[in-house]
């Protein structure tokens, strides 16, 4: 078993908080297998991110910096990541599951001729070796024990399944790796990134998530639950039905084919509780459901269920919480 490389994500120059899950998983796996752990950062303008990355007690930070990597493309980043991984004898390459790693890691796996597993829930080690992983299948209705053969394994890590790495006082050494990227040969370029403007926390980072479904009847319904979200500094989530209807952006979808969250408090409003939705939120600490149908399946997993019309209950809830907060 070789070393562990953890690819970290950065945004606007800062290390992305979600990466802390993969960092924790990777540093622990390296310790259990007597390997070394390296955090990898790719891009340009990443001084702050690499400084932050050097504070988690990894054996080193590897950077691939080049102006040609300023805008992300899977094609260019796969080349950069491949060179960085090769610079160490890596046996395991990790990143937290995200749109970025889902796009990039399969390409990287092929470059490395490595088996790849997505969205792992745990890493099993045995006798100082990686013995296998667990991961969810069929919308989380099954957990699979999987084995991966070969010298190198590539895996994405479910953010909610691992604790966040904590900062230590000693700084890891930072080593640059230089990579030549021929932009012309990539056949791909990013033309534009359109960010959804929001002052709310990202779904994955929020300790409270307020989600709405088809029962909210339209974008106006989401306006109502936003008042509740304001009280908690919460992120807004949605069922696929609400996303499908175009009431909220796609990246707010919680579930099997959207985001997986496990906040301290999850409030599902006008959501029936289909298994595909539960797959994305059933590990939340406290779950509240507000639904006008007393038989809605969501009540079978909610800690607190309120049978009510959201249009009446949510404004009331806002007032009551204001009283006790």
């Amino acid at each position: 078993m070789g070393n562990v490389i953890i690819l970290c994500e950065h945004k606007n120059g800062d290390l992305v908080k979600q990466s802390l899950s993969a960092i924790k998983a990777g540093i622990d796996a390296a310790k259990a297998t007597s390997g070394k752990s390296f955090l990898l950062l790719i891009g340009s303008g990443i001084d702050k991110a690499k400084e932050a990355a050097s504070r988690f007690g990894a054996d080193g930070v590897i950077t691939v910096e080049d102006a040609s990597l300023a805008g992300y493309t899977a094609e260019a980043y796969a080349i950069a990541a491949f060179e960085a991984v090769k610079s160490q004898s890596a046996g395991l390459v990790l990143a937290t599951t995200s749109a970025f790693s889902k796009d990039l890691f399969p390409r990287l796996a092929v470059k490395l001729k490595a088996g790849m597993v997505s969205d792992i829930l745990s890493i099993k080690t045995d006798g100082g070796k990686i013995a296998g992983f667990t991961r969810a299948m069929w919308a989380g209705s099954m957990v699979a024990d999987v084995e991966v053969s070969g010298d190198t394994i590539v895996a994405t890590v479910r953010g909610t399944a691992f604790a966040h790495a904590e900062a230590v006082s000693a700084a890891s050494p930072i080593t640059p790796v230089s990579v030549k990227i021929d932009q012309g040969a990539l056949k791909a370029k990013s033309l534009e990134v359109i960010e959804h403007k929001s002052t709310r926390p990202q779904l994955a980072d929020a300790s409270v998530v307020i989600s709405g479904g088809r029962g909210l009847k339209g974008p106006e319904g989401f306006k109502i639950i936003e008042q509740l979200a304001d009280l908690f500094g919460a992120a807004i989530g949605a069922s696929r039905a609400a996303v499908d209807a175009g009431w909220v952006p796609n990246d707010l979808q919680v579930g099997q084919t959207g985001k997986i969250v496990a906040p301290n408090l999850y409030i599902a409003i006008g959501i029936s509780g289909a298994i595909q939705h539960l797959a994305g939120m059933k590990d939340s600490k406290t779950i509240v459901a507000i639904n006008k149908d007393p038989d809605a399946p969501i009540f079978q997993i909610a800690d607190y269920g309120l049978v009510a019309d959201f249009a009446k209950a949510v404004p009331e809830l806002v007032e009551e919480i204001k009283k006790v907060k």
Partner: peptide, 30 residues
């Protein structure tokens, strides 16, 4: 390269209670 060795069902989350009113909910949440 990737083989599934064994499937298990994840632990089922137990449902809790239905609350009677918005006030009741707020009291319990607090």
């Amino acid at each position: 390269r990737v083989t599934v060795k064994k499937l298990t069902e994840p632990p089922k989350r137990k449902g809790g209670v239905k609350v009677e009113s918005v006030q009741d909910l707020v009291t319990k949440l607090k």
